[in-house]
C-alpha cells in the first residue's frame, strides 16, 4: 500500500493480503468476484486521483506481516552470501548481453 500511494495512481483497491493474491484468496471464487466488483465500483464512482479503498477481507492470521523480508540472526549471513551470488549473476548476465536484471524474488 505504501509503495502504490507513494507512486500515486488514479484509483487503488487494496487487498491486505500477503503479496501474490491481490484478487482474493486462492480458490475462493466468491471472494474473488466480490473484490473485482468492488474494484469496478471504484472505477465508476471515484471523482479524483489517488482514490483508495480497502477490501473488507482479512487473511487467516497475521503472521505474514512480520515475516515479509524478515532479517534476524538466523538469516543475516545467508542474505549477505545471497547478495554476493546475485551480484556475480548480474555481472554474468551483463556480460552475456542481458539488458534486464532479474528481480530479487526470494523474499
Amino acid at each position: 500500500m505504501d509503495i502504490v500511494e507513494y507512486c500515486g495512481v488514479p484509483r487503488y483497491l487494496h487487498s491486505d493480503f500477503p503479496l501474490g493474491n491481490p484478487c482474493g484468496k486462492p480458490y475462493d471464487s466468491d471472494m474473488q468476484l466480490q473484490i473485482i466488483q468492488q474494484g469496478l465500483g471504484l472505477i465508476e464512482h471515484a471523482q479524483q486521483a489517488r482514490s483508495t479503498e480497502r477490501t473488507p477481507f482479512t487473511w487467516k492470521d497475521d503472521n505474514w506481516r512480520a515475516d515479509y523480508a524478515r532479517i534476524d540472526d538466523s538469516n543475516r549471513e545467508e542474505l549477505r552470501l545471497r547478495g554476493e551470488r546475485r551480484r556475480q549473476q548480474q555481472a554474468n548476465d551483463k556480460a552475456a548481453g542481458k539488458s534486464r536484471a532479474a528481480m530479487i524474488s526470494e523474499i
Binding site: 493480503f17 500477503p18 503479496l19 501474490g20 493474491n21 486462492p26 503472521n63 505474514w64 515475516d67 515479509y68 532479474a102 528481480m103 530479487i104 524474488s105 526470494e106 523474499i107
Partner: peptide, 9 residues
C-alpha cells in the same frame, strides 16, 4: 521471478 510472499501463499 516476482517478489510475492512465497513462504505464506
Amino acid at each position: 521471478e516476482l517478489s510475492w510472499h512465497k513462504t505464506m501463499t
